[in-house]
Write a protein that binds this DNA or RNA. Structure first.
Length: 374
RNA sequence: GGAGGGAUAGCGAAGUGGUCAAACGCGGCAGACUGUAAAUCUGUUCCUUCGGGUUCCAUAGUUCAAAUCUAUGUCCCUCCA
């Protein structure tokens, strides 16, 4: 089954969009947040729990599954959906982020990127063609082009070379893609440079991808700069295709980038923060490891309707986190993902009402209450 | 009854004359985390009015200088009877 997107409405005051993704007989509304499940698991959660949080699309990672268990294993299992028992849509990242997080600059060449297998030290080489082949074996519903996620800051000179290479990689990946139900997205790079973002976006649009990602953000730049990068990229993208802002999940960033026309987001933070004892609340983020919660027998968030908040107290979850019990990470992952989905729902509802900016202001007022709002 | 070993910060454990307010680990207290080398990493952890003050079982010594050496005491552990 092929995943399909249709644009339903564009906000009059902002560039925010409402849309629908249909997949496997189900409809998912956008703007949407997608939790990350790098190793074909959203860490600590079962597929039933993933759904319970309100998740639609989830992510998996080409690089990690290539190394373990090997894409051949997943293929033989019948693809990612069967392998991990998840029947919702699955998006795979291409390994492009690992170019940023794992590879050294000298290991990036025109042909591809050299990695060292972290498990056994083997030399690995990932190319655009290989990335697509792996993603096809994995059988994800949305594939990403293999790109270079460039560190920030980078010079215009380096970024220009990198963007041109990323464009050639995108073309190479598209050339080898089979004609099947899997969608393939191009990734707009170009850092903070408007001319490079423009060039990259326009070239990718010419290549006619199924959707477009905005990459190279959330790599250390300020929020204001990130929003600019999104603006520089998005103005050249067609209305009828999905726009995916990669790696962004801070609540305020979700709102700000929906206002700029982004449809889907992914981020590791709800699950990673959960494992580290942090929880989103409508009054800001809290750290349950802090002493003050030791005897706090109230839910993480008093208004939250998630499984965790309906059944457990801060004191109990703090105890689990302090005792290194995975159930704590699981309860907080459920809450944090549910929270972001609820935020997205509020965003959608307020786009419908034409009150997105009012909602943003109200959210910020509560979320950053008592904190310095950088 | 005999022989030996030991007592160091909240806990475990280094240190065996000065470079020791005392390594390291755990625990505690904080912080970071944005397409997950990330259930990880960083800081801090005797007291302090940040000038300094008081520590290494206790007491008395030796020494310019003691957690480190000596004596006595207290407590603990192992082995032999």
């Amino acid at each position: 089954m092929k995943l399909q997107f249709s644009l339903k409405q564009t906000d009059e005051k902002t560039k925010a969009r409402l849309g629908e993704i249909t997949f496997n007989g189900k409809v998912y509304e956008t703007p949407m947040f997608m939790p990350v499940g790098t190793n074909a698991t959203v860490k600590t959660l079962s597929p039933e729990e993933i759904k319970m949080t309100g998740s639609g699309i989830i992510l998996a990672n080409t690089y990690h599954l290539w190394l373990k268990p090997g894409e051949d294993v997943v293929e033989e299992a019948g693809g990612l959906h069967k392998f991990m028992n998840y029947d919702g849509p699955i998006l795979t990242d291409s390994g492009g982020y690992q170019v940023f997080s794992l590879a050294k600059p000298k290991d990036i060449t025109e042909e591809g990127v050299k990695f060292k297998n972290q498990f056994n030290g083997d030399a690995l080489f990932l190319t655009p063609e290989k990335s697509i082949a792996i993603q096809q074996a994995l059988g994800s519903d949305i594939m990403m082009s293999f790109d270079e996620c460039v560190k920030w800051p980078s010079t215009h000179e380096y970024m220009e070379k990198s963007v041109e290479r990323t464009l050639r990689w995108a073309k190479r990946g598209k050339m080898v893609k089979k004609d099947n139900d899997q969608l393939l997205f191009g990734i707009v790079q170009g850092g903070e440079y408007p001319d490079l973002r423009e060039k990259c976006a326009k070239e990718l649009v010419k290549m006619d991808f199924d959707g477009f990602s905005i990459g190279g953000t959330s790599v250390g730049e300020t929020k204001e700069l990130m929003y600019k990068m999104v603006e520089y990229s998005i103005k050249y993208l067609p209305d009828d295709k999905l726009r995916y802002l990669m790696g962004v999940g801070d609540p305020i960033d979700l709102i700000e980038n929906v206002r700029r026309g982004v449809d889907i987001f992914d981020c590791v933070s709800p699950t990673r923060l959960a494992r580290h004892g942090h929880a989103y609340t409508w009054q800001g983020k809290i750290n349950l490891k802090n002493k003050q919660y030791k005897k706090d027998f109230t839910p993480v968030d008093p208004t939250c309707k998630c499984y965790t908040c309906q059944n457990y107290t801060k004191a109990y979850i703090k105890h689990l986190i302090n005792a290194d019990e995975t159930f704590g990470a699981r309860l907080l992952s459920i809450h944090n993902i549910y929270f972001l989905h609820t935020l997205m729902k509020n965003i959608r509802d307020n786009i419908k009402k034409g009150k997105l900016d009012e909602y943003r202001d109200e959210f910020i007022k509560n979320y950053y209450k008592g904190e310095k709002n950088e």
